[in-house]
């Protein structure tokens, strides 16, 4: 039997059939990325990242919207949500803050949410971090204090001073508050 040439009608029909048979077999990377597993295939997440990095400033709102949709999907994994938060750290704005602030209170995702909030400029993200102080404790609280200090959020001084002087706080938290206050004072000077 003769093989069809690449340009023959039979070959074209076969290619069309192949396309149809493959349609839908690859999930939307913007949805799949939130189900990333540590050690798993990250090629879909990578394609999201590549698209995001190439997005011009005017395209950020749309990209942010897609990331927030992904973050809200059920079944998000620890690695997947961490990835989405990493991406929000690049393009996130005040619009992302409510979702991240909610995530901040979930111990499993506190760190990832903080990484994103840490990078988002503006008073909304600063307020979310300050509010978050009441929702976390121990190491996570120390980390949050560090983020607040490095953002230069001087409005947190009273909260930090209270934490520093609170004997019921663990040493790691009080030390973080002490350093944060020093940092804010130095930055002001």
């Amino acid at each position: 039997m003769c093989a069809a040439t690449p340009s023959s009608p039979a070959a074209k029909a076969q290619r069309n059939a192949d396309r149809k048979s493959n349609a839908g077999s690859t999930p939307d990377p913007w949805e799949a990325c939130v189900r990333l597993e540590y050690g798993g295939d990250r090629s879909l997440a990578w394609s999201v990242r590549e698209e995001l990095l190439a997005t011009p400033r005017e395209g950020w709102p749309q990209a942010e919207e897609r990331l927030l949709k992904a973050l809200a999907l059920p079944g998000g994994t620890e690695a997947g949500r961490a990835f989405v938060c990493q991406m929000l750290a690049l393009v996130g704005t005040a619009k992302s803050v409510p979702a991240l602030a909610a995530l901040l209170k979930d111990a499993k995702f506190t760190e990832s949410a903080r990484y994103a909030l840490d990078a988002i400029p503006g008073p909304e993200a600063s307020a979310a971090l300050r509010d978050g102080l009441g929702a976390v404790e121990g190491r996570a609280k120390a980390g949050m204090i560090g983020s607040i200090a490095l953002r230069g959020d001087t409005s947190a001084r009273y909260s930090l001073a209270a934490i520093k002087g609170n004997p019921s706080e663990p040493a790691i938290v009080r030390e973080a508050a002490t350093r944060a206050l020093e940092h804010l004072a130095n930055a002001k000077a």
Binding site: E111, A119, R139, A142, G143, I145
Partner: peptide
């Protein structure tokens, strides 16, 4: 380039910080 500027640093995992 705001995105490039965000890549100049990164938040550290708790309890570590650059303070």
């Amino acid at each position: 380039d705001d995105m490039a500027n965000r890549l100049r640093g990164r938040a550290m995992r708790s309890p570590w910080a650059l303070t």
